[in-house]
Write a protein that binds this DNA or RNA. Structure first.
Lengths: 198, 198
DNA sequence: AATTAATGTAACATTCCTGTAACATTTTGC
DNA sequence: GCAAAATGTTACAGGAATGTTACATTAATT
């Protein structure tokens, strides 16, 4: 929450929010200028709030790069709906760029593909989900319980050792020497983690 | 599970749950007030349940500090998704505070790593758990009994001297001169503590 | 319906962590 | 200064944790 245009700019760059609701009528620096200056540096969704219908034309005409606009007075329901819709739209675009990397490994969530260097590695669903989760949280150690919850599903019921076997199969495909893994490593007594390149 | 607002308050403070699902329509004390009073004392994620769309505005307008809201009727899938998303968000914030430092020592709980300056120190599970506990309570002296309870587990049964040996192994790895420790120190007749830099 | 692939379970193998015990050293109390 | 208590130190065996493989079962495909 910012109470004037300059604070809005500062907060936007500092906090890197997922989405910005931007009023036009602001002290110090109006919404038009704030929007323009944010757009110069960031690719964050912006929804503009206008008090007067007359301003709508201006929002559209100036090609500010706002993703949507809402005219006052608006209901909470309406603004929430706009926010959701905007996030859904922008997430879609993100999906294509949902690529995780760690050293030689490159993972494309959308296409469900994993590459090691230029070579594609064929993975099954479980294997892919597991490596994707570890990659997304590279460096962090996860217990078998946590992995079952996150990868298999919170309501999955089964043996903890299932994780071990899936890890083994992953190593078979990913590691040069599955006996001495350099990607999917074990922290004895704790669980597994994906080692980041040093 | 609480069946009225006052019970909800009592339970929240007693049980310290990870997350609260809070209906608005409650006997004795409604959800708005429960939420407000919990927020005054605790920083627990709260998801509000509303029967009427009209209440949504109120939830948002009152700035109760609820983390999310769901309108009835909702599917199990939806509420689970909201819970997960909320927990993920709040956990993320925890991540950064998972790092403990004391002088040259830097410990990362999530990664289960300990650094002394820029050099990483390889620790076993017990060693890590022990130093993490001492670091989190730097300066405070703990008896062998207390350490067994906190680090080994309240239900652990074994020799008190086990602590000594683990401390010895830790010193071997952490101290420049394990014979004259400057980090993990002994308070004769009492126990061990981690000395804070002077 | 037959075949193939995916995945969980179980059983066996291996590693290396960790507690115990035994002895050494330091400190305390008298 | 001596005995006793507390702590330091070391070695080693047992076992818990993990690795590995095989097989059964389920799901997907032909």
């Amino acid at each position: 929450m910012a109470y004037n245009g300059e604070e809005a700019l500062r907060l936007a760059f500092e906090e890197k929010p997922d989405l910005i609701l931007l009023d036009i009528m602001l002290p110090l620096l109006d919404g038009f200028n704030v929007c323009k200056r944010i757009r110069e540096k960031m690719d964050v969704p912006i929804i503009m709030l206008t008090a007067k219908e007359a301003e709508v034309d201006k929002v559209l005409g100036l090609e500010l790069g706002a993703d949507d606009y809402v005219t006052k007075p608006f209901s909470a329901r309406e603004i929430i709906a706009r926010i959701k819709a905007t996030l859904r739209r922008t997430k879609m675009q993100d999906r294509e760029s949902e690529i995780l990397t760690c050293g030689e490994l490159v993972l494309d969530r959308g296409r469900m593909e994993l590459f090691k260097g230029s070579a594609q590695i064929e993975l099954t669903y479980r294997e892919f989900t597991l490596v994707a989760f570890l990659l997304q949280n590279a460096g962090y150690v996860f217990s078998r319980e946590k992995l079952l919850e996150e990868v298999w599903g919170y309501d999955y019921i089964g043996d903890l050792r299932t994780v071990d076997v899936t890890v083994r199969r992953l190593r078979e495909k990913i590691e040069d020497d599955p006996g001495n893994p350099i990607y999917i490593c074990t922290r004895r007594g704790a669980g597994y983690y994906l080692r980041r390149p040093s």
